Simulated scan of single mutants.
Amino acid sequence: MKLVVIDDHPLVRKALVSLLSNSDIEEIKEISNVEEAMSIIVKDTPEIAMIDVRLGKENGLEIVRRTKEMKLKTKFIVLTSFISQEEFLKAEEIGVDGYILKDAYPEDILYALSVVRRGKKYYDPAITEKKEDNLINTLTSREKEVLNELGKGLRNEEIANNLYISEHTVKKHVSSILAKFNLNHRSQIVCYLNEIKIS
């Protein structure tokens, strides 16, 4: 496997290369900026590129966007020090294959590589937990109450009775929750709640 490490910090690049050199990767190249990265990706089409979002004054996601537009087959794993909801959502939107924090254990980084190499997505658990927290925080206090009742498997009529509101109001809140969570059915809400803890 050919791999490119794209980061503007030499120490980070050296540490990653040292870690990955003990794996089955046959070739690792180091890049520090967008134009060099695009040149290497177009020329060599590495299987995976590990990329920092913040490359000095440049944005590493620009490399992903341009590569996707050119329909090249390189997969991308964002390796970053910061959890930015805006950057994470943008990375998801343009088709990043993995997202992991730089303070992850070496074995987690190697695991992320193996997952992405098999054609699947990998997101650092710390990032997905933050995303879930942010989704919950978009709800109003009443929507959170309705969400908790949905988690008990209650019908709209039962929720209305428990919260002393009309069934019509419950339906409106359920529709709003579905929209905010980008879900289609209330059964998906129950599945979602089984995976996280609502405070």
Results as ranks from 00 to 15, higher is better:
residue 3 L to F: 07
residue 5 V to S: 01
residue 5 V to C: 08
residue 5 V to L: 14
residue 5 V to E: 00
residue 5 V to K: 04
residue 6 I to M: 07
residue 6 I to K: 05
residue 6 I to L: 09
residue 8 D to E: 07
residue 9 H to E: 15
residue 9 H to L: 09
residue 9 H to N: 14
residue 9 H to Y: 13
residue 9 H to G: 07
residue 11 L to R: 12
residue 11 L to I: 12
residue 12 V to K: 02
residue 14 K to T: 09
residue 15 A to G: 12
residue 15 A to T: 12
residue 20 L to K: 04
residue 28 I to M: 06
residue 29 K to D: 09
residue 30 E to W: 04
residue 35 E to H: 08
residue 36 E to F: 08
residue 37 A to Q: 05
residue 39 S to W: 03
residue 42 V to K: 15
residue 42 V to P: 01
residue 46 P to T: 03
residue 53 V to R: 09
residue 53 V to I: 15
residue 55 L to K: 03
residue 55 L to D: 03
residue 55 L to T: 02
residue 56 G to L: 01
residue 57 K to S: 10
residue 58 E to V: 04
residue 59 N to T: 05
residue 59 N to W: 00
residue 61 L to N: 00
residue 63 I to C: 05
residue 65 R to F: 09
residue 68 K to E: 04
residue 71 K to Y: 11
residue 71 K to Q: 10
residue 75 K to W: 03
residue 75 K to Y: 00
residue 77 I to T: 03
residue 79 L to I: 15
residue 83 I to G: 03
residue 84 S to M: 00
residue 84 S to N: 11
residue 89 L to I: 13
residue 89 L to H: 02
residue 92 E to W: 09
residue 93 E to C: 00
residue 94 I to A: 04
residue 94 I to N: 03
residue 98 G to K: 01
residue 98 G to Q: 03
residue 99 Y to G: 00
residue 100 I to P: 01
residue 101 L to H: 03
residue 103 D to K: 04
residue 104 A to I: 00
residue 105 Y to C: 09
residue 109 I to M: 05
residue 110 L to R: 05
residue 111 Y to T: 12
residue 111 Y to A: 11
residue 111 Y to Q: 11
residue 112 A to R: 01
residue 113 L to C: 00
residue 115 V to A: 02
residue 116 V to R: 06
residue 118 R to C: 07
residue 119 G to V: 00
residue 120 K to L: 11
residue 121 K to Q: 06
residue 121 K to F: 02
residue 121 K to E: 05
residue 122 Y to H: 07
residue 122 Y to L: 07
residue 124 D to R: 07
residue 124 D to G: 07
residue 125 P to T: 07
residue 129 E to Q: 12
residue 130 K to P: 09
residue 132 E to V: 08
residue 132 E to S: 14
residue 133 D to P: 03
residue 137 N to K: 15
residue 139 L to M: 09
residue 141 S to R: 14
residue 142 R to E: 11
residue 142 R to T: 14
residue 143 E to L: 05
residue 145 E to W: 01
residue 145 E to D: 14
residue 147 L to Y: 07
residue 148 N to Y: 13
residue 149 E to D: 11
residue 150 L to Q: 06
residue 155 R to H: 15
residue 157 E to Y: 15
residue 158 E to C: 10
residue 158 E to P: 10
residue 161 N to F: 12
residue 164 Y to D: 14
residue 164 Y to C: 09
residue 165 I to S: 03
residue 167 E to W: 01
residue 168 H to K: 14
residue 169 T to E: 11
residue 171 K to C: 06
residue 173 H to D: 13
residue 175 S to R: 13
residue 175 S to D: 13
residue 177 I to M: 02
residue 179 A to P: 10
residue 183 L to R: 01
residue 184 N to E: 15
residue 185 H to M: 08
residue 186 R to I: 12
residue 188 Q to C: 00
residue 190 V to D: 05
residue 191 C to T: 13
residue 193 L to D: 04
residue 194 N to Y: 10
residue 197 K to Q: 10
residue 198 I to E: 05
